[in-house]
Write a protein that binds this DNA or RNA. Structure first.
Lengths: 305, 305
DNA sequence: GCGATGTATAGTTAATCTCTATCGCAGACA
DNA sequence: TGTCTGCGATAGAGATTAACTATACATCGC
C-alpha cells in the first residue's frame, strides 16, 4: 500500500470508471487496474464491483476510500509544513549570549531582528560561555554570541566585531587627568572583577598579567554583573575594566564615573557568532549578524572577513 | 514521498541513529540514509542535523515527523478497516423482497438471520419485481427475493423454493366440497386479483389463461395486497388464488375462509434469490438462503440445485 | 451473433529500491 | 599528533516494482 495506490483508489471512487480515473491520475488504465487489484489483494477485501455497465464501490470500499482521503490529506499537510518551514527566517531561533554582551547588545538587536525577520521570534538565554557552548552542542541553542577564542568540535564561528576595553574609575580619580591608561597600571589599583566563569574576567586578567598572580589589590565579585560593578565603582569601591559597549554609552549621563581608553596597543575582545556546522538555517544567522552590525554599539569595529 | 519513507523518517526521529533506525526498519543503513536524503530533497528542507556525535532533528523536522506519525496512524486504520470488513457477515445487507412474499417470509427470516449473523443488520425494502431489479442493479439493494423467471443482465439468480398455489374461497362456498380445484374453473368465479406490476397477478393469470382475455368475472384491485384480498374473500366478494405460504397458515384460525389445492399439475411459483454477479459477499447470501429454507413456510418445497 | 465499451492480462521497459562494499569525516585516545 | 573507531554518505550492482503498449476477455445492446 503506497500513497500512490491510495490516490488511484480515491480517483476511482470519484470517477467510477477505470479509464477516466486513470486519465485523471495521468496513468494508463492498466496501471490503475493493477494497482487497485493489488490493493484489494493486500487488504483482502473487494473494494469495487466491476461490471460492464459501471463500477460500484462496496460498503467496505467506501469506508476505506474515506480513510484513504484522510491519509492523503494528512500527507498533503507534510508538504505544506515543508513549504512553510523552508524559510530559514520563519520559526523561533534559540539565541545564546554571554552575560557581558547581553545587556548592551540585546536592546538594539531585538527590534532589528524583528524588523528583518518578523516571523522569527528569538528565544534568548544569557549565560557563561561554557554553558552556552554546551547548550549549543546539545541543540538547546541554535546560535550563540561569544568572545573569541572559542573552539569547539562541530562548532563554527564567525567574528562579528572587535570591542576595545576601557578603564572605568570614579569621577575625580587620580587617573582622570590621563587621556589614556597603560594596562600595566591596573595592578596598582583596587580592580573589581567578575567572578570565575565569565570570559571577560579572564580577558581582563590577560590584559594585566600582574593582576593575576599573588595578592593583588583586585577583588573578585562572584555572582556579580558589569552593571553591579559599575555602580560599585561609582561609589569609589575601586576601578574596573569594561568593554566599550558597556562603558561608552554612559558619559554625559553619569557624572560619578570617568571612562578612559587604554594606551596602544589597545586591548580588545573579538565577539563572534557560533553555531553547529550542521545547522541548516544559515539565513537566520546572517540576519543576526546584520542586526548586530546594525546596532549602535559604542566603540566597536566590525570584522570584515 | 512514500509511506515507507515516512516510516523511515519516524524511526530515525525515534532512534536518532541511522544504523539503529535502519535495523528497526529491517533495512540497511544506506537504504535509510538515502531515503531520508531523498525526502529532504523532495521537501527541500533539512530534517536532521547529522554529525559524528549524534543526529539532531530540526524544528521543522520535528513538526514533519509529528505529521508523518499522523499519516502512518491513519494509514494503519485502513488495514484495520479492511480486517473488520473482511467478514461478509459484518455490515448491513440491503435486502429486497416482493410484496407477495414479504409479509409471510420476513417474520421468520429476520430472527434467523439475526441469529446466524448478529452483526449483519438487514435493511429491507418491499416492492415490485421491476423496482427491486432496478435498485439491485443500481446498487441500492444487495440481494432480492423474487419469483422466477427473472432474467437481468449482470444479475444471477438462485432458486430457493417452489410454492404451490391455493384457491381461497369464503367458507360455505360451492367449491368447498371439492378436495382439489381445476385451474380452468377459475374463469367461472369472480376472481380477485392484485394490480398490475405484481408478478403474482401474472402468474395467476397464466394458471388460468381464460381469465386473461375478454370480460371475465375477475376484478383487479389496484394498490391492494394479498391480505386485503383475503379479507375481501372472507366477506364473500369473490375467490382468489394465493401462494401456499399466504394461504395455508390460516385454516383453523379463520373460519370464514376455505383453502383448496389445485388439481395436478399443481401450479406453483419458484422463488429465488438474485444478486449482481459482481457482488462479493456471497457468504451473506448463503446466510439468507439458509434462513429462508429454515423458515416454516407452509407448503413450500426446497429447490436443491 | 457482432460491434462497442470497458476491464483484465501479458510482456517489455524503465525507474526505483535495496543491497554490499567502501569512502570520508570527526572525535577519542594514547 | 597520529591512529583508531564509530557513523553517515556514496558508488555500483542486482532485484523489485511500476509503468507502458498491445491485446485478450467479458458483457451488453442492437
Amino acid at each position: 500500500m503506497t500513497l500512490t495506490d491510495l490516490r488511484y483508489l480515491v480517483a476511482l471512487a470519484r470517477e467510477r470508471h477505470f479509464g477516466h480515473a486513470a486519465e485523471r491520475c495521468n496513468v494508463s488504465q492498466p496501471t490503475l487496474s493493477v494497482a487497485i487489484k493489488k490493493l484489494e489483494d493486500e487488504l483482502a477485501v473487494t473494494l469495487f464491483e466491476r461490471s460492464a455497465a459501471d463500477v460500484k464501490i462496496t460498503d467496505i470500499g467506501a469506508r476505506i476510500v474515506a480513510q484513504a482521503e484522510k491519509v492523503l490529506l494528512e500527507a498533503g499537510q507534510i508538504k505544506e509544513l515543508a513549504t512553510a518551514g523552508r524559510d530559514p527566517l520563519s520559526g523561533p531561533l534559540k539565541l545564546g549570549v554571554i552575560y557581558t554582551i547581553g545587556p548592551y547588545l540585546l536592546p538594539h538587536l531585538i527590534p532589528r531582528v524583528h524588523e528583518a525577520a518578523p516571523s522569527m521570534p528569538l528565544l534568548i538565554q544569557e549565560n557563561y560561555t561554557a554553558r552556552l557552548a554546551e547548550s549549543l552542542k546539545r541543540g538547546d541553542l541554535d546560535v550563540i554570541v561569544v568572545a573569541l577564542p572559542f573552539e569547539e568540535p562541530g562548532i563554527v564561528t564567525q567574528a562579528v566585531y572587535d570591542e576595545p576595553f576601557r578603564v572605568l574609575m570614579p569621577a575625580g580619580h587620580a587617573w582622570e587627568k590621563d587621556e589614556r591608561i597603560a594596562a600595566a597600571r591596573l595592578a596598582e589599583a583596587p580592580l573589581l572583577l567578575l567572578g570565575a566563569g565569565n570570559c571577560f574576567r579572564d580577558q581582563v586578567l590577560e590584559v594585566c598579567p600582574m593582576c593575576r598572580s599573588g595578592e593583588g589589590l583586585q577583588r573578585t565579585l562572584e555572582g556579580s554583573s558589569l552593571e553591579t560593578i559599575r555602580h560599585m565603582v561609582a561609589t569609589g569601591a575601586g576601578i574596573t575594566v569594561l568593554p566599550s559597549s558597556a562603558a561608552d554609552p554612559l558619559p554625559g549621563g553619569n557624572s560619578l564615573l570617568t571612562v578612559r581608553p587604554f594606551e596602544a596597543p589597545e586591548p580588545f575582545r573579538r565577539i563572534a557568532l557560533a553555531w553547529r556546522v550542521t545547522y541548516p538555517r544559515s539565513g537566520a544567522i546572517d540576519v543576526i549578524r546584520s542586526a548586530i552590525l546594525g546596532s549602535p554599539l559604542q566603540g566597536v569595529r566590525p570584522v570584515t572577513r
